[in-house]
């Protein structure tokens, strides 16, 4: 039980996929302009991650090592296509805003990374929980970044006006540089709190 709890909580802060493991950065930056899109993206990624971890963990003993990578790729790609199609059918508006980035979950290193680093060595139940934990860790950062960018950039949060209408919006945080700098600062704060120092 303790192990389960640790597997969920660890990726939330001490071993966060984005700020500590440095995985899955691309999408974290690209979809965080609005909270709504980040939320859906987190949901899509977490589901794909849980399923892929589970499936790969189930297959881990029968999978021939020679074609390990390509099998993982196939499983992940199929799951992503599933997610993409479900989004298109049931959340059409959001899926349009996410455009190619749902597809890019395939090359999102979190999914591949967790499959390689965790699911291949651990039983299905634990892998599933690991997928969930990492998904949560990813979502947490995404939502924080998106909240900052949306509030500063547009004066809204989840499309609700939170700052006075007179607030003009800051263009820089909406553009690429803003995303980079915000993530940089979040990493700084988070690493200062957990006392992790990287030696260059």
């Amino acid at each position: 039980m303790a192990k389960l709890k640790e597997t969920v909580l660890d990726p939330l802060s001490d071993n966060n996929p984005i700020t500590v493991q440095v995985l899955g950065i691309c999408s974290a930056l690209a979809v965080t302009i609005k909270v709504e899109t980040s939320f859906v993206m987190s949901l899509a990624l977490t589901s794909v991650l849980i399923c892929s971890n589970l499936i790969i963990s189930l297959l881990r003993n029968v999978m021939p090592s020679k074609i390990r990578m390509i099998v993982e790729m196939t499983v992940i790609a199929s799951l992503v296509i599933l997610a993409d199609n479900i989004l298109k059918a049931y959340m059409y508006d959001v899926s349009r805003q996410l455009s190619v980035f749902v597809g890019l979950i395939i090359t999102n290193c979190i999914v591949m990374g967790r499959a390689e680093a965790f699911a291949l060595q651990n039983p299905p139940r634990l892998s599933l929980v690991d997928g969930f934990g990492n998904g949560l860790g990813y979502s947490a950062i995404l939502i924080v970044v998106a909240s900052l960018r949306e509030v500063i950039g547009f004066g809204t949060w989840y499309n609700y006006q939170v700052l006075p209408l007179a607030y003009e919006g800051n263009g820089l945080v909406i553009l690429a540089p803003g995303a980079f700098i915000i993530i940089g600062l979040i990493i700084w704060i988070q690493r200062s709190v957990i006392h992790k120092v990287e030696e260059d």
Binding site: T19, A176, G184, I187, R191, E199
Partner: peptide, 17 residues
């Protein structure tokens, strides 16, 4: 210390961008 490595890299990337 907390900014070393990844954090600083991000901020530099932001400036390059």
């Amino acid at each position: 210390p907390g900014l070393k490595g990844l954090g600083m890299t991000f901020i530099i990337t932001g400036l390059m961008s």
